[in-house]
Design a binder for these strands. Structure first.
Lengths: 339, 339
DNA sequence: TATCATTGAGCAATCGATTGCATTTTTGTT
DNA sequence: AACAAAAATGCAATCGATTGCTCAATGATA
């Protein structure tokens, strides 16, 4: 027969002629247990192939060892890299990482939060969906004694621990770079204004222009999706304009790509005629010809910071600031390098 | 005070003046409970904000509602897309998806398997690490009453359900395409031979050439990592050769990229002088100039098939074949299109 | 009306680990 | 040698849901 029942601490106790409590304490390295006993227990556990029943422990302790991560889409370089970083750290601390994607739908976000809470996650690290404007589901989290950490797309009013990119500086750096390259007329392709990320990029961009007595009132296009397709539409709009801008800033690389392609199809030279810059430093940006100037979001650092915010919190290190800002890095490539 | 204890089925039972067993059965839609009672229970559960304690249920039932997914790296377009597909389906069926990455290390794979088993996953969907040659840890899975499904990087001898790309055809299609384009001398940059994926690509490639009375014995480079860096090294090796091949097939886009870049840096025209093709259809391949011919692995289909293999199995639909093969799609771009 | 199904619901044990409190054993002190 | 203090271990309740078995109520049938 190969259907051996799972070994429990009671089996170990029996074999060692001690009680289950002692076994439990020994395995948890409780100081009340002598080193000798601990050693015996561990040896026997090894020998009998003991594997703890996490569900039982969870039930008793009222918590699991899980961290939930909710993002719009997993197969976005930014998110998958952040998740990778999160997983790496979480695992060394004994946490499992449960993932969910919202596909930018509010309803999916709500459901994922509930499911994760039921699965007894100790924390939810979340990057909000584009649709999310109501936050009741997130308030459930603390009521159910789990932690909440925002990253990237945060909800400022909730005042929860959060990690965000310095998106203001994203806009500022790009604007300054454009100015350095001699641009005087600007285009801007932005996203929904209620998402902090997009709002801040816009602010950083426009305020820097204004500080230089310039503006780009005419050529602002706000889109909802920031896909390549939307980028193409925006590009067509630009071309229909009587006068092309010297430089266009897109808050997303994919949208930038759309513009980029339309411009090239219309034989409008990048960067000589119009410069283009995006955000995310997606892998493909490097390989366009010319390369697409973009802003690296330091996704790995963001992921790491997010888990660490949680880990520090439960380890009682309140010293850490509750709101972490990661600095972006402007990657200058051919699309903004005029000779 | 806001520290209300969690509502349990006992609280519901008390409020409804029935027993916890009845509540449990009602919530699980057990036919032994009348519709009237079910309705009352559900209403009260809603009203009191009842949320099940999954740990308790898991403990009692001896299983969780989790699916574990283990891959080399999450932030690879292929894997993140596959995981995305898995998550999407799993969630609709009430499963949580727990992820882990091995970074191609055997030891990480072993540890992840153990942790996941302890977390009571119902299944582990795995794409093996490049180092994995020993499979004891995987045998644990069935002993602990969980299912095992391989995808992409599989272990043939274990004869477990698996989903793989038709990698033989990958090699074959590329070879045929090269032949169509008039190539007669070939380079090949491959990976470790004990990984099914690489072996099959090689076989498909070489056997197609041989069927045409050609070979490429001279120019085979096997590497371990298949990174861009390794690709560059391989590219340099090619150039040092007295005679460049007409076409080079790299079993990975990143490695192909390395070769591609080195060739360009040495002003060797692609495709006129040498054609290059890769595998994975990474997003960047489309945006190189010229575009990099590659083979799409249909990662979404692979992910879907993997979960479904598991889901069908537990739903008792043994009709499905246990070994699924997904067809690749050759994407021809400029890097192999001679005028 | 008596009898037997049938249906609906309750009882109580169970899953395996944890933990407050009690008890036993050991060590140290005078 | 006697006893307090400290160290090590045991006892038993507990976490919340599930489930085999028993019991009660309702209805059908002769």
């Amino acid at each position: 027969m190969n259907i051996k029942k799972n070994i429990t601490i009671h089996d170990l106790a029996l074999a060692l002629n001690i009680t289950a409590s002692t076994v439990s304490r020994a395995l948890n390295d409780n100081p009340r247990i002598s080193d000798a006993t601990k050693k015996r227990v561990r040896l026997m556990a090894e020998k009998m192939g003991y594997q703890p029943n996490v569900a039982a422990a969870n039930l008793r302790k009222g918590k699991g060892n899980n961290i939930g991560v909710i993002v719009p889409r997993i197969n976005r370089s930014f998110f998958s890299t952040a998740i990778g970083a999160i997983e790496e750290i979480a695992r060394t601390k004994g946490y499992n990482v449960i993932i969910a994607q919202t596909h930018e739908k509010y309803i999916n976000e709500v459901e994922s939060v509930i499911t994760m809470l039921n699965a007894r996650v100790d924390a939810i690290l979340i990057s909000l969906s584009a649709e999310t404007k109501n936050f009741e589901h997130l308030e459930q989290i603390s009521k159910r004694r789990a932690r909440l950490v925002f990253f990237d797309r945060i909800c400022e009013p909730m005042n929860a621990p959060s990690v965000e990119l310095n998106d203001y500086r994203v806009g500022k750096d790009v604007a300054n770079h454009f100015l350095d390259m001699g641009a005087r007329k600007f285009g801007f392709l932005g996203g929904p204004d209620f998402i902090n990320v997009y709002k801040n990029r816009w602010n950083g961009f426009i305020e820097t222009l204004m500080a230089n007595n310039l503006s780009n009132e005419d050529i602002i296009i706000n889109t909802k999706a920031l896909t390549r397709e939307e980028g193409r539409n925006a590009g067509l709009q630009l071309i229909e304009n009587r006068q092309l801008p010297d430089a266009v800033f897109c808050v997303s690389d994919f949208a930038a790509l759309g513009i980029y392609q339309v411009l090239r199809e219309h034989n409008i030279n990048i960067p000589e005629k119009t410069m283009v810059a995006g955000v995310a430093n997606e892998p493909f940006t490097e390989f366009l010809t010319p390369g697409l100037t973009s802003v690296d979001q330091n996704s790995e650092a963001i992921g790491k910071a997010a888990v660490n915010l949680f880990l520090n919190e439960i380890e009682g290190q309140e010293t850490e600031q509750i709101r972490k800002v990661i600095e972006p890095r402007l990657i200058i490539r051919g699309s903004t390098l005029k000779q």
